[in-house]
Design a protein around this nucleic acid. Sequence first.
DNA 1: GTGAAAGCGCTAACAG
DNA 2: CTGTTAGCGCTTTCAC
Lengths: 347, 347
Amino acid sequence: MYQDQQPGDDRHERQPTIVDVANRAGVAIGTVSRHLNGQSVRMSNRDQIERAIAELGYRRNSTAVAMKTDTSHIVGFMVPSLGEFHAGILEQLTRKMRLNGRAVLSFCHDMKPHLVREGLEFFASHRVDAVVMDGEDVVRADLLPYIEKGLVVALYDNDVEGIPVDRVFVDNRRASARAVDHLIDLGHRRVATIRGNERDYAARERLAGFRQACDARGVVVPPEYVVHGNWGEIGGYFGIRALMELAEPPTAIFSANYNMTIGALTWAQENGVVLPRDLSLVSFDDVPAFKLHNPGITAVEQPIERLADTLSSVLDARLADPAVMGRREIKVECNIILRGSTGPVQQ
Amino acid sequence: MYQDQQPGDDRHERQPTIVDVANRAGVAIGTVSRHLNGQSVRMSNRDQIERAIAELGYRRNSTAVAMKTDTSHIVGFMVPSLGEFHAGILEQLTRKMRLNGRAVLSFCHDMKPHLVREGLEFFASHRVDAVVMDGEDVVRADLLPYIEKGLVVALYDNDVEGIPVDRVFVDNRRASARAVDHLIDLGHRRVATIRGNERDYAARERLAGFRQACDARGVVVPPEYVVHGNWGEIGGYFGIRALMELAEPPTAIFSANYNMTIGALTWAQENGVVLPRDLSLVSFDDVPAFKLHNPGITAVEQPIERLADTLSSVLDARLADPAVMGRREIKVECNIILRGSTGPVQQ
DNA sequence: GTGAAAGCGCTAACAG
DNA sequence: CTGTTAGCGCTTTCAC
């Protein structure tokens, strides 16, 4: 049934182990292990070991290490999907983690509860050192038991309240307020927003920022100036339409994310609304397409690299000593990139 | 120095193991293991085991399994960076792999040889089932030893010739030829290209497609109509400039990737070149920004989902039986998305 | 079917 | 410093 095990067979010939190295170097495996882990070893032995390793082509079996030490040097990354923002975070996270010898295992849950469970289960059973995730609402119920079992998790982008984890967010509220301030500075008084899904923390914060800026400057916002875009492109498309078909349409719009902005732009283009003459538009999230667009889109830029940096240092600290410090919540600031889509109010 | 180990301490209380389950269920660990692996077990035992698992909150330790079986159910994914294309592949790959209980571990090598070595080393030592990677030229030298040691790898996007691995590409040549055909159909005779880095297989193929289409239609391509864009945005920017400042500038350009197209578009915008009146432009790679651009950019769409699908079935087959089948090279077709950036030649 | 037992490759005591 | 040894949690013989 099975092929004969010819010597020199194409199948894996057993990889050399620490035992082989020890034998060849004429020392005990303990010594090899110590050397491998950077502890000091008599110099002559060190050379012997190095030599044996090179000759054998020995490569440490990290699964064995993981099993023994209960740390895998892998961190899990769980997101709904890998659009520009999350992909950017993943890329930077990968870079940062690599400095501590860790790699990132990714999982997309597509907003489906059974998939978040499956992913969490995978992570936990593979003993990832930690998991970083977008705090979608769908994860709340499932997350808690893992955390109680000792899983280290860090949330970003979105919050799930009431669970004891570290958090790294952008200062959604402040950045939104500043973006809206910019609109008001330009003389706009009829300013509207296309908002994200209300069950998301980020959406609530961005809306709060919008309101805060308007209130502070005495700009009143009629209820019909707040439309739901539900984070998506079509939401943006119909959102702007609802706004522009009002008897008294806004002269400026704050769109709470990239996708909705794309939708809004599409509608504007189709309907001959020219920016910034007929309408000023500012978007949360900056993406390459906005720079290229004519006119360029004024946008709130999330500092992806800093987010990933922060995430990774929070995790490093937490992993170095899981118990010592209280839960942290860090907010990082955004930049506002001024481009041509916003201009003085006309009239 | 250390905290007292209070019972109920916040630190990990030892997770239940298969032994605990066996004890609680009153069977031997072998029986539990068999049940866990889907082999048949006496029904009464099955129930006992299930029960014990539930009560204990037992979770299989995949690192132990990995060590024992020498398969981790993890596949490595190595790319230079996570731009739109690679991120898309990763996302789909994640989805596909999940169906077979695998997850994807990613690593960005930033085109630095020492990082590709580090990544490969990480993958190998963690005993990934396979690695899928963009066949960048930088990996060639390092890859071979791993393959000889039995590492399963699949290449996509770009080739590294002369190594025994599976390959999944887009039909770069054919797709390019079709895109250029479209230009010629529109009456263009002065057609130029901004090409990618010549050490890359994809760049060579796309150029070959360009040439092939021109030759077939009797369109002669003067040497100065082939400019090097080196895959990047600035390459595209200066590439189009070189072309348009020619005494006899082209009336149509085929840009060999997304980044160079962005650069070209930027220059065109800055210099009052309006598409498609003054110039027709077709790009390899389709990205969201192209749909939004005014006019929309005619582009070759790489079928990301199909690529990932194919990659994952090739790997499934290979992993099911590493020896049985010869190396495979699969080419998948692209779609050409016609938009407003290409039009009949003017004059 | 099942239980007992032998490891997988490694780390971390432990005694020297 | 070093060698020896006891496991980590699991799969997989091997008898029964």
